[in-house]
Write a protein that binds this DNA or RNA. Structure first.
Length: 597
RNA sequence: GGAGCUGUGGUGUAGACGGUUAACAUGUCGGCCUGUCACGCCGGAGCUCGCGGGUUCAAGUCCCGUCAGCUCCGCCA
């Protein structure tokens, strides 16, 4: 068996001087000086400089002249200390170099399409098409290693807390509610389909009925919805569920996990417990159910003052059950009229009917709407807003939720540029159990249909369903929803009642969820759990904007893999086996794209 | 489903008021060079401007369409 290496390239140090080393790796760069060639050899541990001297071995030297970028070689040589003048402080191995005595070319390489180095500025298209080269770059390797380390910490932590890692099926059944499913046709049952799991939700609940008590899984999940920088059609969740384990237990468990991750991978000591905020407070103060607490600019209610002014839009909103809310943008008075108009366009995109503004100046207000306010009212407004000279104040007058949402968006848009690089965790609690979907003209679960309502709100299920609060919570970090969890329903009758509220008939309940409803009749323990987005979590830890950076083989915004070409048409025979016929509209296109056989 | 941005040698960019041979850097190939480390010097090759159509005497440049990538809205229990 050949010996490929005695050390990693990047691990050699001055203390290794005098030793013989065998190294294997990729040619990063060749510097040919005529009678002397330097090669930077790279493996995943780093770079080391190899030296080929023509006066030492002319045959070996001649072979070194043929080396090119990304050739894979194995070398043997002596680790020697560099003379002080030749030390390269920019390189971790810069105090030594390897005088090569033997070299084997393991595999040549075509000229790489882009540089295998960090801080690459190249089209993401190309990176994705040649992802294996992209991943060869040290910063990408570091991301993979980082993700591995974080995942391992999660596994060890949950193991230490008595959680069992258990796999659940990837081929399962489509259920109503939630995201669009990825479907997999069944050959054995023509016309029937599996669905890839949106989450292992039902299985983990059934594991609780099984008496597992504590389950977790690093679970791949699938949702056939449009992509974003932080959304891929397949993604990974840290999924867990526990029985006889209240919300306080779960909060403490997750806080411990976050503290561990930040300590181990970032060296940051998190303060626990994390603050908590009811959903309604988050909406009122930040216009968001996942507020970024790294800066202020909170929403302020001015409805009472608006009622006294002469501005019809404000008064109308106030008198017709709506609100007038405001945010103060410190120093925003410097904005030009054009910039403010652009804000109004943005706000309109978020559903605002208009965007009123005022600029505080020494001794007064500059604003198109100031004339509708009396001096005294302006004075009270200034106090309410704590406005200082040079501040810009933006108003939204609308129904409560709409006004809050619009200002919440504006708040994020106008957030200070240099936000502190500090994690601000938050539990958002007391979400409403249900929302009304005007399109479908029915209630939909705000979280999912298995979330338990708060005990004291159960009577409201009949009288005022929208007022029912859920035993549900989101973990939010710096404006990003990291995950959400809940205590689940574990009683058949209550589960049935919720399904009915969601518009499912009894027959549908039996058909789609009969197994769950039945399971609840065999001594289902109270249970609950949470799922955290691992991709988002890792991206936050690495400081990446897009989760594509921490996923080795991600899809594009068009849900395609540029490397493999997935998705792709399949042979007619494959479709026939599955009893699938293509629509005429797509038929020609699909067969046209089929590779020649 | 909608909106915006981007697409020019292998790679990253310039060219955009329409007008000779599409420029620069880097890479690549050849030559020279024994201390470089983004090595240096000399020389060469390489793009028809994402694709299709249109306007024009003339299109990388203007117009329409289309494809791909990115970002956002809708969507994502």
């Amino acid at each position: 068996m050949p010996l490929y290496r005695t050390a990693g390239c990047g691990t050699l140090r001055r203390s290794d001087a005098g030793c013989t080393a065998v190294l294997s790796g990729w040619v990063q760069r060749r510097r040919d000086h005529g009678g002397l060639i330097f090669i930077d050899l790279r493996d995943r541990s780093g770079l080391v400089q190899l030296v080929f001297d023509s006066s030492a071995d002319s045959a070996l030297f001649a072979r070194a002249e043929k080396l090119r970028s990304e050739y894979v070689i194995k070398v043997e040589g002596e680790v020697v200390e560099r003379t002080p003048a030749n030390v390269n402080p920019a390189l971790e191995t810069g105090e030594i170099e390897v005088q090569v005595t033997a070299m084997e070319l393991l595999n040549p390489s075509r000229t790489p399409l882009f540089y295998i180095e960090d801080n690459l500025n190249v089209d993401e298209n190309l990176r994705l098409q040649y992802r294996y080269l992209d991943l060869r770059r040290p910063e990408m390797y570091r991301r993979l290693a980082f993700r591995h380390r974080a995942t391992k910490l999660v596994r060890d932590y949950l193991d230490a807390h008595g959680f069992l890692e258990i796999e659940t099926p990837m081929l399962t059944r489509s259920t109503p509610e939630g995201a669009r499913d990825y479907l997999v046709p069944s050959r054995v049952h023509p016309g029937s389909f599996y669905a890839l799991p949106q989450s292992p939700q039902l299985f983990k609940q059934l594991l609780m009925v099984s008496g597992v008590e504590r389950y977790f899984q690093i679970a791949r999940c699938f949702r056939d919805e449009d992509l974003r920088a932080d959304r891929q059609p397949e993604f990974t969740q840290i999924d867990l569920e526990a029985s006889f384990f209240g919300m306080e237990n779960l909060f403490a468990l997750m806080e411990g996990l976050m503290a561990l991750l930040w300590r181990e991978v970032k060296g940051i000591a998190l303060q626990t417990p994390f603050p908590r905020m009811p959903y309604h407070e988050a909406m009122e103060r930040f216009g968001s159910d996942k507020p970024d607490l790294r800066f202020g600019m909170e929403l302020l209610d001015c409805t009472d003052l608006a009622r006294e002014c002469e501005f019809k839009i404000f008064r109308g909103a106030a008198e017709e059950g709506g609100v007038v809310k405001a945010i103060r943008v410190p120093g925003g008075g410097r904005m030009s009229r054009k910039e403010i108009d652009e804000l109004a366009v943005l706000a309109a995109g978020w559903g605002a009917k208009g965007l009123a503004w005022m600029i505080r100046e020494d001794g007064g207000w500059r604003s198109p709407i100031a004339k509708f306010f009396s001096e005294a009212l302006l004075e009270r407004l200034g106090q309410r807003l704590q406005a200082e000279s040079g501040d810009l104040v933006l108003f939204a007058a609308d129904q409560r939720e709409q006004a809050c949402r619009i200002l919440g968006q504006l708040r994020l848009h106008l957030a200070p540029r240099d936000l502190p690089d500090q994690p601000r965790f938050l539990w958002v609690t007391d979400f409403p159990l249900l929302e009304y979907d005007p399109e479908e003209q029915r209630y939909v679960a705000q979280h999912h249909p298995f979330t338990a309502p708060r005990e004291e709100d159960i009577p409201l299920l009949d009288s005022d369903p929208l007022a029912v609060r859920a035993q549900c919570y989101d973990l939010v970090l710096n404006g990003v929803e990291l995950g959400s969890g809940s205590n689940r329903i574990h009683q058949r009758d209550l589960q049935m009642k919720i399904f009915e509220l969601l518009g499912l008939s009894e027959a549908e309940c039996q058909d789609k969820f009969g197994f769950l409803l039945e399971a609840f009749q065999y001594g289902a323990p109270p249970h609950g759990g949470i799922a955290l987005g691992l991709d988002r979590l890792v991206a936050l830890l690495t400081g990446d904007e897009s989760i594509r950076q921490v996923i080795p083989f991600p899809k594009t915004a068009g849900a395609a893999c540029l490397m493999t070409g997935a998705p792709a048409p399949v042979a007619p025979q494959q479709l026939k086996e599955l009893s699938i016929a293509l629509d005429d509209k797509v038929k020609d296109k699909a067969s046209g794209e089929l590779p020649a056989e």
